[in-house]
Design a protein around this nucleic acid. Structure first.
Lengths: 230, 230
DNA sequence: ACAACAATTTGCAACATGCAACTTGCAAAA
DNA sequence: TTTTGCAAGTTGCATGTTGCAAATTGTTGT
């Protein structure tokens, strides 16, 4: 197993950096986005909460996305959730051990899915994570910026909701992501005009108080991109 | 030099992938974007035209951007041009030698700057590059998609022009990037309203035929981002 | 003075967006 | 049975944006 790496390393004449993937796992809690952190299992920074991540296993992972799925599954039990490559952080300083490359991803998971996973994750408000090892605070900042950017022209924020949701929930999650209030009538008009959703028939959600029942929707296509601001 | 890599490799217990950077260097030629390719110096695919790229040198490069600048300078003589991280391509298949990571960048260079560099680059229409080694064709596709996306809401396309340009040239480069005709009056209104440019006084460009002289502009800020479609 | 021609502006209809007021459906309270 | 509270969902309107066509302007060669 080691042989292969060494052999090619000799051929290429260049010492190789460490290569890891790190995942900014975001989920909504109380109208705010939270990041899921895990205590580090090993040095450096052992036991300190940090992004979910790990080494690329060259014998096992076909590509970076496979590594992400393997690590997500192993460390949180989650699979089948939305994730997307964010940016690669690569420098001689970011890891005290050596020159290191972190291929960073952001992942979105609905509240209920994460609750049911039943793993002890450290959830922190994504815009106030405090001190974190390595450049993990920078990575989280980049993830939020990217998600906010994409919120303006894609259905990505809907990946923070369960499969079926109401229009109000959809608007609320966009507001959470974008960090600003949106006009209700404009929001509905836009979403309807874009024709992104399909109605779900049947069991209207139970309401606590008496009020008009809500239409339930789901995304027609898992990912839609559109032009303008919501 | 080798010692450090090996020492840490032993510590981490994981064989490390190859890490390179690849640069999609784009420049306009005859109303189309072209990519600059160079014949590969070594195996695999020796002598075949490919993206400008090279290994990260862990003893020399402080970070991935430093590696990009070093490689651009060494292989084309260019420095001080705009470049931005595109995406990282990482898999066991993309390089026949080993599991490999390519941190891909795209770079924009004005026509005249590249001409004056005086390097023998193989320029090919970016949307028809033909067969290329590795996944370089995919990387170029991704670069074009990204640039087109950013064209709609940033001044990045202006980096394909010399520092001083006319409004018509600016519109033409946006059209080249976006791959669609834009309305002249709407374009000018928008650019003016956004207040991105400043007039350059003095020497109006020489025109071949008799006509109204053009106002020359330059970007106020090297990078401006705005909301909507141009 | 006129012609030719790109540069630049103007007018206007169609469309989009933000804000406020209005209507609707349900069930608990009166 | 009617009234009421409340969120769901719609409508009207003032304002801003965009695309298309036509008009104006500044130069120089005829």
């Amino acid at each position: 197993m080691r042989a292969r790496g060494l052999k090619h390393m000799a051929e290429t004449e260049f010492p190789r950096p460490i290569v890891t993937v790190d995942i900014v796992l975001l989920t909504p809690r109380e109208e705010r986005l939270h990041v899921a952190l895990l205590p580090r299992a090993a040095e450096p920074f052992a036991d300190m909460p940090a992004l979910i991540g790990g080494y690329v296993h060259v014998e096992e992972d076909a590509n970076a996305e496979s590594a992400v799925m393997r690590i997500l599954k192993a460390k949180t039990g989650l699979s089948g959730i939305f994730f997307e490559q964010l940016q690669t952080f690569a420098s001689m300083n970011r890891d005290p051990r050596d020159w290191s490359v972190s291929i960073a991803y952001f992942a979105l998971v609905p509240r209920d899915l994460l609750d049911n996973a039943g793993v002890a994750l450290d959830l922190r408000p994504a815009d106030a994570v405090g001190e974190l090892p390595f450049d993990h605070a920078d990575i989280i900042r980049a993830a939020l910026e990217r998600l906010r950017g994409k919120g303006a022209y894609s259905t990505i924020p809907a990946r923070l909701l369960p499969e079926v949701f109401t229009m109000s929930e959809l608007q609320a999650i966009y507001e959470t992501v974008m960090g600003e209030r949106l006009d209700q009538s404009a929001f509905r008009r836009k979403i309807n005009d874009l024709n992104l959703l399909e109605e779900v028939e049947g069991e209207k959600r139970q309401t606590e108080r008496a009020r008009r029942p809500t239409t339930l929707y789901r995304l027609k296509s898992p990912l839609a991109v559109f032009d303008r601001r919501i």
